[in-house]
Computed example of a mutant assay.
Amino acid sequence: MLDIAEELHRWVEQGREFAVATVVGVSGSAPRQPGAGLAVDSEGTVVGSVSGGCVEGAVYELCREALEEGRTVVERFGYSDEDAFVVGLTCGGVIDILVTPVRGGVFPAALRAAAFGEAAALVRVVEGPAELMGRALLVRPDGSYEGGLGDHPDLDRTAAGEGLAMLDAGRTGTVEIGEDGSRCGRPVTLLVESSVPAPRMIVFGAVDFAGALARVGRFLGYHVTVCDARPVFTTRARFPDADEIVVDWPHRYLESAAAAGAIDGRTVLCVLTHDPRFDVPLLRAALGLPVAYIGAMGSRRTHEDRNRRLREVGVTELELARLRSPIGLDLGARTPEETALSIGAEIVAARRGGSGVSLTGAHTPIHHDGPHEPDGRRIGSVA
């Protein structure tokens, strides 16, 4: 549901009544992952998607019914030959959908947090005793929470703890606890949706390729920074798609950002300078950081020379193994746009655990359980 928070926050501000359908369970080759949402207001306006189109019509009607009747329901959709194009999943998977009317409680605060890029976790009961279904609490990064799941205080405390753990990891998925908050007793399944700030893409080198990559990075959901030490090239006019323009020596900026806590395990670093004066100190600093991706542009000859220089300044073979160079997948790219596409594709493959090979004739999964979503969530994180 938080994936459509900006629109739903506007609906709340406008006083519109609506119901939300949220994917809470997935098995097989389902097109959307837990947390994906679709909402319908009292006028019949719809936003979002829970299946990429397969079951939207049936879910739309469930939302209308939930608004009229004021009740929460869970519905399962799977593949059937007869109904594949009506209410079944043509891809062959199975999804469970939670449909609930949104009328106050913690939902407005959760939607506002997600809409403004604030860290928070929405925890909801998606399976368990009927009287608990759909109840929710909102967990903040400091561990505080509002709302409640039931009459047992231990249930709220345990649920808040689980929500905080998922929030710290930037994950969305389900967890199971006991009805009284313990690890035993009648089980209650919780869906935890984490809202975290956008991950960072830092592009070093104010070159034409950086402009194209800034567009791709923003399209993929990253907060894009372009950094270069040359002020004449590092301008807003040249990089209108970047969220941030920084004029500084690349290694100095990276070190200060890391010291300020602005670099994390979701950050991707793209080094497009291919100049030893910039590359060596920058990559020496980058390869010591726990980031998601480090790529450097240059020919294979440049790559070998750069690796030699990095070894000379103390970079280990284990650290060098993290460097993706030459940067990008082999698409035969030539233009800045094509090159940016190849870099973006490699970042997605690294994030999702993909191989980068053509799906035609391959026997690999179409969807992978990679380590990171663009917003920090983990794919397939359904316990």
Score class of each variant (00 low, 15 high):
H9R: 14
W11Q: 03
V12H: 06
V12E: 15
F18E: 03
A19Y: 07
V23T: 12
G25E: 09
A30N: 01
L38T: 10
A39V: 04
G52N: 05
A58H: 12
E61N: 09
R64H: 00
A66S: 15
A66H: 08
A66K: 11
V73Y: 05
E82T: 13
F85V: 09
D96M: 04
D96H: 09
L98Y: 08
L98N: 07
V99Y: 01
V99S: 00
P101M: 06
G104M: 06
G105E: 12
G105P: 06
A113Q: 08
R135W: 10
R140M: 14
S144K: 13
L149N: 03
P153R: 13
T158R: 15
A159Y: 12
L164K: 15
D168E: 13
A169D: 08
T172V: 05
G178D: 09
C184K: 14
C184R: 14
T189P: 02
L190G: 06
L191Y: 10
L191V: 11
E193C: 02
E193F: 01
V196T: 14
V196S: 11
P197Q: 01
P197V: 07
P197C: 01
A198M: 00
R200V: 05
I202D: 07
A206M: 05
D208T: 09
D208P: 11
A212E: 06
A212G: 10
L213W: 10
F219R: 13
V224G: 06
T225V: 15
A229D: 14
R236W: 14
A237N: 06
A242M: 12
V247F: 12
D248N: 13
A257Q: 13
A258R: 12
D264V: 01
R266W: 07
T267A: 00
V268W: 03
V268Q: 02
L269R: 11
V280R: 01
G298P: 06
T302P: 00
T302Q: 05
R306N: 00
N307W: 00
R311Y: 02
V315E: 05
R322Q: 12
P336Y: 06
G344F: 07
G344T: 09
S358Q: 15
T364Q: 15
H367P: 02
G370K: 06
R378Q: 10
R378E: 04
V382H: 04
